[in-house]
Structure formats: structure tokens, C-alpha cells
């Protein structure tokens, strides 16, 4: 979690600054000046968080995979599920605790860094155009993509399918959701896909976890 935050802060921060200098050194050649009206396509292309966003997606997916493996796959290999499950807590509570911990991990590590970078981009005078709120929301959407990958990894770990091809369906579904989002990027479309992804995977995980043999 800390590693993901550091990686994203380092690479995201560096790319943000690099892009800021790039925009600053080129804005005159693009025919822009402070206070000029910016066309939407330019806003998209030269948004100070465009490159940082890519790193946010990569770190988020990485964190999702790592947490999914840590929470669901490693206990299977180390056979610690029976020790964890036999206690004065229902399976719902144990699963809820894991999912809540993962969500908090995403918010604390990547979310806080993202808020910091967005705040910096808005406040910094290096940028000609402050990033719109939509960019901020998109960043959070990228963070939720990591959560989708986390759920996909959890589903794959919990699956009792005999064949690897059927076992990785959960993770494959998460990847399909991500591909669908980036194949046709639109905020509303992306939001809808993320919601579908989370609902489908979450319902499957709850059902599997509550009825699975350990």
C-alpha cells in the first residue's frame, strides 16, 4: 500500500512537473496565453493530469492485484483460512473487513496522493489552464479500476474451478471491464462499466465466500 503510494507519488509527481514545463515552454507556439479561451480538445490534450492519469491507472491495477493476492490467494497457499474463519465473527464480517481494508488502502494510498497532485496542479502557476473537476473525478474512477482488479483477483483466488482457464474468469472479467472503458472513453460510459464490474464481481464474491469450503 505504502509502496503503491510512493511509486505513484514519485512517477506521477515527476510526470506532472515534466508536463508542466513542457506546456509552459510551448504554450506560445500553440497560440495560447494566460486567460485565453481554451477549446475542449486542447484541454483534453494538454490537461496537466493527462500523463499522471496513466500512471494512476497502472499503480491502481498493480495495487489491486497485490492486495487481491495478499488477501485471498496467500491464505489458500499457507492454509490459514481455517484459522481465520473459526472465530467469533461471521463470514460476512470477515469478508466485509477484507473489502473495507482494501477500499481504505486505495483511498489512503492512491486517493490521498491523487488529491495532493490535483491540488498542486490547480494551485501551481506553472500551468496555463487549471484542470477541470472532471479530471479529478476521472482520477477517482481510475482508482476504482484498481478495486475492480482487486475483486477480480479475489474471485479468481476463491474460485474452486478445476481448470485454470475457468479459474481466471474473475480476473479476465475485470480486464474486460478495463478494456471496454478505454476502448471508448467517455465518463458516463466508464462510470456505468465500473458500476457493472463492481456489482457483478462483488455479488459473485459474496456468494462464493459464504458458501465455499475451506
Amino acid at each position: 500500500m505504502l509502496l503503491a503510494a510512493i511509486i505513484f507519488l514519485a512517477i506521477g509527481g515527476f510526470s506532472l512537473r515534466a508536463q508542466a514545463y513542457f506546456v509552459q515552454s510551448n504554450w506560445l507556439s500553440w497560440g495560447l496565453s494566460p486567460g485565453s479561451v481554451v477549446e475542449p480538445y486542447r484541454l483534453t490534450h494538454y490537461s496537466p493530469l493527462a500523463i499522471t492519469g496513466i500512471w494512476l491507472v497502472i499503480t491502481s491495477i498493480g495495487l489491486g492485484l497485490a492486495l487481491g493476492v495478499r488477501h485471498f490467494l496467500i491464505p489458500l497457499f499457507t492454509r490459514t483460512w481455517p484459522f481465520l474463519l473459526h472465530r467469533s465473527a461471521s463470514r460476512q464480517m470477515i469478508l466485509g473487513a477484507k473489502l473495507t481494508a482494501a477500499t481504505i488502502a486505495f483511498v489512503v494510498s492512491l486517493g490521498s496522493v491523487w488529491i495532493g497532485l490535483y491540488w498542486y496542479a490547480c494551485r501551481s502557476e506553472l500551468f496555463m489552464v487549471p484542470p477541470p473537476v472532471r479530471v479529478f473525478i476521472e482520477g477517482w474512477l481510475f482508482i476504482v479500476l484498481g478495486l475492480v482488479v482487486y475483486l477480480g483477483t479475489a474471485m479468481t483466488a476463491l474460485s474452486k474451478a478445476r481448470w485454470y482457464t475457468t479459474k481466471i474468469l474473475g480476473l479476465a472479467f475485470a480486464m474486460v471491464v478495463i478494456c471496454m472503458i478505454f476502448l471508448q472513453w467517455r465518463l458516463s460510459w466508464a462510470l456505468a462499466m465500473v458500476i457493472i464490474g463492481v456489482v457483478v464481481l462483488l455479488s459473485q464474491i459474496i456468494d462464493t465466500f459464504l458458501n465455499r469450503e475451506f
Binding site: T78, T80, P82, F83, H86, S88, A89, S90, M93
Partner: peptide
């Protein structure tokens, strides 16, 4: 098995699998 019942049962797993 309710959590309250599990609370009254001690279980030592095979191979003593604990969080490493």
C-alpha cells in the same frame, strides 16, 4: 455455527497454520 458458539470452541488447525 453462530459466532457466539464458535467463541466457546477452541480449534487447533492441522499443521498449526498461523499468520506467518
Amino acid at each position: 455455527l453462530l459466532p457466539a458458539i464458535r467463541q466457546r470452541i477452541g480449534y487447533v488447525t492441522e499443521g498449526h497454520r498461523l499468520f506467518r
